[in-house]
Structure formats: structure tokens, C-alpha cells
Amino acid sequence: MSLDPVILALLAGPVAISVAGRNAELRPSVAHAYGCRAVDEGARLRLFVLREETRQLLADITANGEVATVYSDVRSFRSVQIKGHGARIVPCDAADVQRRAEHHRITADELVALGYPRALAHGYFSVPAKADFVTIEFSPSDVFRQTPGPGAGDKIAKGAALDQAQRDKIDGAA
């Protein structure tokens, strides 16, 4: 499925991103992602993670392909959760590298605009010079509203090209 333009816009903006998986004992794993890239209007999502920070997560995804990702706008806390099955670990490509640099810049700049010290804002996205990045790629199967509070975040669902099943999912808190 492709993603609603509202959601694609959120993903392209200054967002904090996290990825979760789980192992065979249903113990969850979680890590920070350094950006994401939507391919074919969101039919596939590619998230960039540091191998050394995500060993358990990568092992879990390799074993069962289950993935949950959350994208939270650093300005508004407007958030969306996108889940998928059959996720794969693939090498980063050139477009991933470019998108990661862009994500770092816009998100850190936004944090600075919000009043965070520059060193801190950039620090959260900075990585070692020889950082070993990999890409988690998956096809979204479910989208959930995730903005804090039971009644907030309706705008993500409203007036968009979401089908009814997705709207129902968004209305059910994730």
C-alpha cells in the first residue's frame, strides 16, 4: 500500500524515529533510526540504523521480519506508528546516505530553532566517522495514530486519501 500524503509529509519532516522488533520469546528490541526514506509513495520504507546500536534488533528482524516504527515530529509531538511484516536488512544505498544527511540537518536545525543547544541538537544525530549503517526495509501494513493523549492527532487521519480500514486503524490508539 502507498501512504497518505499527510503521513509522507510527516516522515519527510523533522522527526525522531524509533524501530522495534521482537524475538522468539516475544521480548521486544528497540533502537533509534537516523532517518527514513519512503520509496514508491511509501509502498516501501527504508530506515537507517547503526549496526553497533542494533545487534538484537537486527537479529530479531532477520529471524521473523516483524517491525514497528514510530515517527514523532519534534515540534508538535504529532506522531504516527507504521508496522510491517517481512522486513529485511539490506545495505544502505546512495539515496539512503543522502536522505540520512538531510534528515540530520532538518531535524537538528528544528531542535535548535526550538531552543536546544546546537551541540546537543546535532549530537543526537551525529555518528562516528566510520559508522556502519544498514537499512531496514519493509512494506507498511498498518498505520496508527500515535500522538500523545487519547483525543489528539486527528488531523493525520482527516481529509486524506486513506481507505476506511486505515482510518479505523488510526482511530484505534496504537
Binding site: 525522531a16 522495534a20 521482537r22 516475544l26 516483524e66 514497528a68 509531538f77 500523545p148
Partner: peptide, 20 residues
């Protein structure tokens, strides 16, 4: 700074949430 919590339902579907 907000944190993230990952959980998993009984069917094996993971979930991740931002928590304050």
C-alpha cells in the same frame, strides 16, 4: 527528552510508543 518503549502483543506484533 521523551523516551521510547517497545512492547509486543501475544500474537507477536511489536509496538513502539513515545513516552514522556
Amino acid at each position: 527528552i521523551p523516551s521510547e518503549i517497545a512492547t509486543c502483543d501475544a500474537l507477536g506484533v511489536p509496538n513502539v510508543s513515545v513516552i514522556s
